[in-house]
Structure formats: C-alpha cells, structure tokens
C-alpha cells in the first residue's frame, strides 16, 4: 500500500514538473485574401466585382528570426531558415524553442535568403536546391514564389508568375520585416495578398522571374503585407 502511495506521489511530482515546463512559442503563418484565409486553387473576387483570381503556388523563405526588447536582441533562432509552402500546412507553423518566458516588444525576420548563404554552395534541408526554390539558369535562391491566374470577365485569363530573388548588388531581394510584438504562445503572422494582386503593379508586370529592379520593388511590396494578429 505504501509502495502504491509513493508511486502515485512520484507520478504527481513528475506531472507537476512537466506542467511547469513552458510550451514552445510558435509563429503561425496565415496568408489571407481580404477577410478570408487563403486557399490554393480557389477563386477570389477582386474589388471590381467582375474579375477573379486563383493562386496555384505560394512558397517563400522566412529566415533570421529574432525578437527584440527595447532595441536589444533577446532571442535569435539558430539555423533560422524556413521554407513556407501553402500546400504543406505543417510548414506554416514555426516552433521557437527557448523563446517562452522572455520579454520582448518586436519581432524581426527576413523575407528571403541572405547573400552569404546564396554564395556558399550546396545546402541541405530547407535550403536543398531540389526544393524548387533555387534558380538553375543562374545561382541564387528564389525568395518568394507566387503563381496563379486572373479571370477577367467570363473567359479571359492572364497568368502571373512571380519568382522573386536576387542576392547581388544592386538587386538584392531579401527584405527585413519588423513588427511590434508582445509575448504570446502563438503569434499569428498574417500575409495579406489581396492588396498586392489588385495593385496596378501586378497588372503591368504579370511575370517577374529574374533578379532586377522590378523584383526588388515587388519584394518590398510583399514584405509590407506582413502583420501580426495579436
């Protein structure tokens, strides 16, 4: 009887210890179109109420995740490279071990891959060139990939292909995103694509597939569409 009591007590102690260990915090990435969570291969009505849009591919790199408190870095994720793919729900969730319990007021990350990594040869994991996020006609990661098409009226269709990258001056495409941020178990990181695809820019430039001024301009526009839902 005493043995059973001791066993139960030790189980309770263990449970207590486990319960005290903080759960890792997460960044949950949520692409949206207007008020709706974005789904691939689904038509979304544009603001003119006649045209619609369908997105087939949305993939991008998030790297260099850091949290700051009053301008001082308090958390820097190691080996911080994440390939986010809307077709792979698990890739939308980034677990941040060791962040829980820290005080911070700002989240920063990069949209894309830094220039040093771009010139350092073959990488593995999320950076493996076989993921389709590395150009083959010239060296460099594709930081952001968005593909789909517009339906204008009943039948007319226009494809759009955005492969944004480039690491070399003057067309380095990586963009740093800084967002005010409070400690939270689950940070919802919104990427709003409706503004981007209704802007005149996308009508003028339906295809951007190489490094250059247009790619940098659009990368800045994409980076500006991130926000945190607190």
């Amino acid at each position: 009887m005493i043995r059973i009591l001791i066993f139960c007590l030790s189980l309770l102690c263990c449970h207590h210890l486990v319960a005290r260990k903080p759960e890792p915090e997460h960044i949950q990435i949520q692409p949206v179109f207007g008020t709706e969570n974005l789904k691939l291969n689904t038509y979304y009505l544009l603001n003119n109420h006649t045209d619609s849009i369908l997105i087939e591919t949305l993939r991008f790199y998030i790297s260099g995740i850091e949290f700051f408190s009053r301008g001082e870095c308090v958390y820097k994720e190691k080996n911080s490279f994440h390939l986010v793919d809307l077709a792979k729900p698990q890739s939308l969730n980034i677990s941040l071990a060791g962040l829980a319990g820290l005080e911070y007021d700002q989240l920063t990350f990069n949209l894309g891959i830094d220039s040093t990594t771009n010139v350092s040869g073959a990488m593995g994991g999320e950076l493996d060139p076989s993921t389709g996020m590395y150009w083959t006609w010239q060296s460099g990661y594709i930081n952001f990939k968005l593909e789909g098409h517009y339906h204008s009226g009943a039948t007319k269709m226009q494809q759009f292909v955005y492969h944004l990258g480039g690491y070399a001056y003057p067309f380095a495409g990586i963009q740093q995103v800084k967002l005010p941020c409070k400690p939270n178990q689950n940070h919802i990181l919104i990427l709003a694509l409706d503004y981007l695809l209704q802007a005149d820019f996308s009508a003028i430039h339906p295809n951007i597939m190489s490094p250059g001024a247009e790619a940098v301009q659009m990368a800045k526009m994409v980076a500006a569409q991130f926000s945190l839902k607190e």
């Binding site: 771009n118 010139v119 350092s120 040869g121 073959a122 060139p129 590395y134 083959t136 006609w137 010239q138 060296s139 460099g140």
Partner: peptide, 16 residues
C-alpha cells in the same frame, strides 16, 4: 559567370 559556386554548376545543364 551565371553560377557563383562549383557546387551549384551541375544544376544548370541538368535543368536546361
């Protein structure tokens, strides 16, 4: 000079 590293060179002919 499209390719910046010997490791990455083989990607070009394989995918062209």
């Amino acid at each position: 000079g499209a390719i910046n590293h010997l490791d990455m060179q083989a990607l070009a002919p394989i995918n062209h």
